[in-house]
C-alpha cells in the first residue's frame, strides 16, 4: 500500500488542531460528497480519501500512530513491541511489509465494512458507488426495442434498450453498481449511449430529415417516385411544378418516440431538383423553344 498523506488530503498543516481537522473535513466533504457530485467518479474517490483522512486524524490515538509510523501506523503496537524486542535482543529487525494492494487502507474498508463506529456520529448506511459506462450503438440499433448484454466486472448485465434512445442519453441499471457500505444497497450502473449515425437520415428529436434528388421532368410534370425511409421503401406522388427545396412530410415515418411503443416522429423530405447536363443539340433546341414561349 502506498503512503497516503492525510494532512495533504485535508489540506492542513501537521500542527492542525482537532477543530482545524473538523473544519477542513467539513469543507472538503461539502465539495466532494457523492450526492452533490452525481455521476462523478473522481469526486467519489476523493470523498473516500477525505473520509479516511478524517477518521485517522480526528482520532488522537490514531493520529499519534500515523505521525510516528506513516503508512505502517496501523501496525504501530506491533512495531513498538518489535522495537522493544530488538532493543532487548539486539537482534536483526525483520521488515514489516504492507498488507494490502488497495488504494485505500484496510482501516477504511473495515470502517465501512461494518466495523465499530467511531465518534458519536450515527453510522449511516451508504448506497454503493454508481458506476459509469459508455456504450456506442448505431442509430439502427435504437430503432427497435431490444435486449442487450454487456460485461461489467466479469458479470453479464442484460438490460433493455428502448427504441428511440437519444445520443448521450443515460440509462440507470439499478443494483449493478458498487457494493453498499454498512449493509447499504448496491449502487447503480449508469450507461451513457453514444449513437452513431451513418445513414442518410438526420435526426432531430423524433423527426428524421433527408434530401431526395428529383429530375427536372418529374419536378415539372409530376409523377411517382420511390423513396427510402428508415423502415423500407415507399412510393411518393410528386406534384407537377414542384419547386427546388420543397419539403414534404411523411407522417409517422420518423424515429420511434422514446418509451412510447408504436409512436413515431415524422420524416421530412426535401426535394433537390437535378438539372440535366450534357444537353444534345435537340434538347438545347427544345429548351430554347421553351424559353421563347416564356419570354413572349
Amino acid at each position: 500500500m502506498a503512503f497516503i498523506d492525510y494532512y495533504k488530503i485535508l489540506e492542513i498543516d501537521k500542527s492542525a488542531t482537532i477543530d482545524d481537522i473538523k473544519k477542513a473535513y467539513r469543507k472538503m466533504a461539502r465539495k466532494y460528497h457523492p450526492d452533490l457530485n452525481p455521476n462523478d467518479a473522481v469526486a467519489v474517490a476523493k470523498f473516500k480519501e477525505i473520509n479516511e483522512a478524517n477518521e485517522v486524524l480526528s482520532n488522537p490515538e490514531n493520529r499519534k500512530k500515523y505521525d510516528k509510523y506513516g503508512k505502517d501506523w496501523k501496525h504501530a503496537d506491533e512495531l513498538d513491541k518489535q522495537k522493544e524486542q530488538q532493543q532487548y535482543n539486539r537482534s536483526q529487525q525483520s521488515n514489516y511489509g504492507g498488507s494490502s494492494d488497495n488504494d485505500y487502507s484496510d482501516f477504511f474498508e473495515s470502517m465501512f465494512g461494518g466495523g465499530a463506529s467511531r465518534g458519536n456520529r450515527a453510522q449511516v448506511k451508504y448506497k454503493g458507488q454508481d458506476l459509469n459506462a459508455e456504450l456506442k450503438l448505431n442509430i439502427r440499433d435504437v430503432y427497435t426495442t431490444h435486449k442487450h448484454t454487456i460485461i461489467i466486472n466479469g458479470k453479464n448485465v442484460r438490460f433493455t434498450i428502448p427504441a428511440g434512445l437519444k445520443n448521450e442519453q443515460v440509462l440507470r441499471i439499478i443494483g449493478h453498481g458498487g457494493e453498499g457500505m454498512n449493509g447499504g444497497p448496491k449502487g447503480d450502473l449508469l450507461i451513457k449511449f453514444i449513437i452513431e449515425n451513418d445513414t442518410k437520415f438526420k435526426l432531430d428529436n423524433d423527426n428524421l430529415y433527408t434530401t431526395v434528388d428529383l429530375d427536372l421532368y418529374k419536378a415539372m410534370l409530376g409523377g411517382n417516385i420511390n423513396v427510402d425511409t428508415f423502415d423500407g421503401n415507399v412510393t411518393l406522388k410528386v406534384k407537377p411544378e414542384t419547386q427546388n427545396g420543397t419539403k414534404v412530410k411523411l407522417k409517422g415515418k420518423g424515429f420511434p418516440v422514446y418509451k412510447k411503443e408504436g409512436v413515431f416522429g415524422d420524416l421530412y423530405i426535401t426535394y433537390n431538383i437535378v438539372l440535366p447536363t450534357n444537353l444534345t443539340e435537340k434538347e438545347r433546341a427544345l429548351f430554347t423553344e421553351l424559353s421563347k414561349l416564356r419570354t413572349l
Binding site: 452533490l36 452525481p38 449511516v124
Partner: peptide, 29 residues
C-alpha cells in the same frame, strides 16, 4: 429520503439547506 439523511448527517446541512441543494441538483440535471 436516503439522500436527505446523508446530506443531513454527513454534511450537517439543515432542512432549508437540503431544500436548496436538491433544487440546485435538479436544475443541474
Amino acid at each position: 429520503v436516503e439522500k436527505i439523511v446523508r446530506l443531513y448527517h454527513e454534511l450537517e446541512i439543515n432542512m432549508v439547506g437540503i431544500d436548496v441543494v436538491l433544487n440546485l441538483l435538479e436544475k443541474l440535471s
